[in-house]
Simulated assay, not measured.
Amino acid sequence: MDLVLFDLDNTLLIGDSDFEWAQFLISRGVIDPEVQEAKNQRFYQQYVDGTLDIFEFLEFQLSPLARHPRAQLDAWHAEFMHERVLPMIGDAARSLVRDHLADDAMVAVVTATNSFVTGPIVREFGIEHLVATVAAQENGQFTGKPRGMPAFKAGKIDRVDDWLERIGLHWGSFERTWFYSDSHNDLPLLARVSDPVAVDPDERLREHAEAAGWPVISLRGAF
């Protein structure tokens, strides 16, 4: 059996769900547009540049979850899926996931974006397993803080290790291990698997992939 891991934002999605969720909340007047949009743009650029402070970003990203009841958040998320997420899912991404699932691989999404935002997106792809940054909860209400290690950079390896251990598996349980990603931020996990694949990569990842002889593919042709 193979283990197939996918990054989500700008890999399976033609866009960034983190960024779009904040923009969606701004559009609904849930968070202040002038201050928050500038912060959202700044954090996204820091991510692209590889300089993001993940804990500072998570304070920005998770704090709105703590200010609203779960029922309201779920209602907003349903609108968000329809308006923002579904247009970012191309046929090529759906086909690639289906092919790996048809081969009886264990398929998971591994993403720094929190599990509240990403859970419904991953289910839309028919993927059972999600390894993500976890938004902490108390009594069914989000606290605005992360729980445990964020699934970011080398933290993705730690979170995958923990997930595999919880289900009684380990890296050696698989014949081949795959990871698809667009970002140089994912180089630690890309280097950990037997079959790294660069998907519509940023410039730094493309240079690394070409030097290492990794496959470089695009999932945007069918958008």
Results as ranks from 00 to 15, higher is better:
82 H>K: 09
14 I>Q: 13
81 M>L: 12
7 D>P: 01
92 A>S: 15
26 I>L: 03
40 N>C: 15
49 D>V: 14
30 V>F: 07
103 D>K: 14
39 K>T: 07
89 I>L: 11
69 P>K: 09
112 A>Q: 03
57 F>S: 13
88 M>N: 04
58 L>E: 04
26 I>R: 08
104 D>M: 06
90 G>K: 11
18 D>I: 04
95 S>G: 12
13 L>P: 06
106 M>E: 06
28 R>M: 04
7 D>Q: 03
7 D>F: 01
55 F>P: 00
26 I>V: 13
43 F>T: 11
101 L>K: 05
103 D>M: 12
109 V>K: 02
64 P>L: 08
16 D>H: 07
15 G>S: 10
106 M>A: 09
45 Q>V: 14
39 K>C: 09
93 A>E: 08
45 Q>G: 13
89 I>R: 08
82 H>L: 09
38 A>K: 12
74 D>G: 00
50 G>T: 13
81 M>Q: 11
49 D>L: 14
82 H>R: 12
73 L>K: 01
59 E>Y: 05
12 L>T: 10
21 W>V: 05
71 A>V: 11
112 A>N: 06
56 E>V: 10
76 W>I: 00
73 L>V: 05
75 A>F: 02
109 V>G: 08
54 I>P: 02
56 E>C: 09
112 A>R: 02
81 M>H: 07
41 Q>D: 14
104 D>P: 02
58 L>S: 02
76 W>P: 08
97 V>Q: 06
73 L>H: 02
99 D>S: 06
85 V>H: 12
71 A>N: 11
110 V>R: 02
14 I>Y: 14
66 A>R: 04
40 N>D: 14
15 G>E: 04
85 V>S: 10
77 H>P: 00
65 L>N: 09
97 V>R: 01
109 V>A: 01
102 A>T: 05
85 V>R: 07
25 L>P: 01
25 L>T: 00
55 F>E: 08
107 V>A: 12
45 Q>F: 10
45 Q>M: 11
65 L>K: 04
48 V>S: 03
99 D>V: 06
110 V>A: 00
26 I>W: 07
111 T>K: 03
27 S>R: 12
76 W>Q: 05
85 V>I: 15
32 D>Q: 04
113 T>G: 03
110 V>E: 02
20 E>Q: 12
87 P>D: 13
86 L>E: 13
20 E>A: 14
86 L>T: 10
111 T>N: 05
38 A>P: 00
72 Q>G: 01
86 L>F: 15
66 A>Q: 07
45 Q>C: 06
79 E>A: 08
7 D>H: 01
99 D>E: 14
17 S>Y: 11
37 E>P: 00
106 M>K: 03
36 Q>S: 13
107 V>E: 08
67 R>W: 07
44 Y>W: 14
99 D>N: 07
9 D>K: 01
81 M>N: 09
57 F>L: 10
40 N>V: 10
30 V>S: 08
76 W>V: 00
48 V>H: 00
96 L>W: 10
95 S>K: 13
55 F>K: 01
38 A>S: 11
24 F>D: 02
17 S>I: 08
25 L>Q: 10
53 D>A: 14
82 H>V: 15
45 Q>A: 14
